[in-house]
């Protein structure tokens, strides 16, 4: 259901699993002190051992297999500074009963300020609407997170979506309770405002011969 990889002009998103992500390259980011300013606006606990990173991938694999969430590793493509490196993680969480996809992203610090967030949003909006037939894509950020406010506000405007409001205590996880600004983009808004020349390409895993299907020879 979810493409194994998605390519945009400057990025390649690869399925976040053990085949495509090395726990040490993930851990280098998720344990970096400089990332604290990112985590402070999320319920995420920085990783303390590389095993935390292994479990992070395990969870993403489970959610993928259960069709609950498409989690990707973000890698800049050739020509970009740091091409091929692990630049961060992005997901489209599928709330099927709400016909809603929820976006999330975090980027390692060297990759900030390049507009990668919007490029990845375009890719995952394409996935949500064109491939998964969802009705709404939502994104929230902590009300005090100015960086996210700028990045999210920009692409939500661009795609004709709307800022719904500030939802108090909308996220709660352990000690972390957060007021969130929620935005949504509907399928109609997307169809009206999607980029004319969409450079988003889905790369599916090659079909594995399925010998269990059908009667076959016994």
């Amino acid at each position: 259901m979810f493409p194994a990889a998605i390519e945009t002009e400057r990025l390649r998103l690869e399925r976040l699993d053990h085949e495509h992500v090395d726990p040490f390259e993930l851990y280098a980011v998720t344990s970096a002190p400089e990332m604290a300013e990112v985590w402070r606006y999320t319920p995420f606990d920085p990783h303390e051992t590389v095993y935390d990173a292994v479990e992070y991938v395990d969870d993403a694999v489970d959610r993928w297999d259960d069709a609950e969430s498409a989690d990707y590793a973000i890698r800049p493509r050739e020509g970009e500074d740091g091409a091929g490196e692990f630049a961060g993680s992005a997901f489209l969480n599928t709330e099927w009963d709400r016909r809603t996809g929820r976006l999330g992203i975090w980027l390692a610090k060297p990759f900030w300020g390049r507009g990668y967030s919007e490029e990845r949003a375009t890719a995952l909006l394409t996935l949500a609407f064109d491939r998964l037939d969802l009705e709404v894509v939502s994104v929230t950020h902590n009300v005090e997170n100015d960086k996210s406010r700028r990045a999210v506000g920009k692409y939500v405007d661009r795609f004709g979506g709307r800022r719904e409001g500030v939802l108090r205590n909308f996220v709660g996880d352990g000690d972390y309770v957060s007021d969130e600004v929620r935005y949504t983009i509907s399928r109609e808004e997307w169809l009206e405002n999607r980029p004319g020349e969409l450079a988003v390409e889905f790369v599916d895993e090659p079909d594995t011969p399925n010998e269990d299907l059908g009667g076959g020879d016994r």
Binding site: E164, L167, R182
Partner: peptide, 25 residues
């Protein structure tokens, strides 16, 4: 305060309702 309307928030059979949410702290 009135917070806003959450689109597609409440699945209800074949329908999905938008929800107007308020809060008091």
């Amino acid at each position: 305060q009135y917070e806003g309307v959450l689109r597609n928030w409440v699945p209800d059979g074949d329908e999905i309702h938008d929800l107007h949410r308020y809060s008091v702290s």
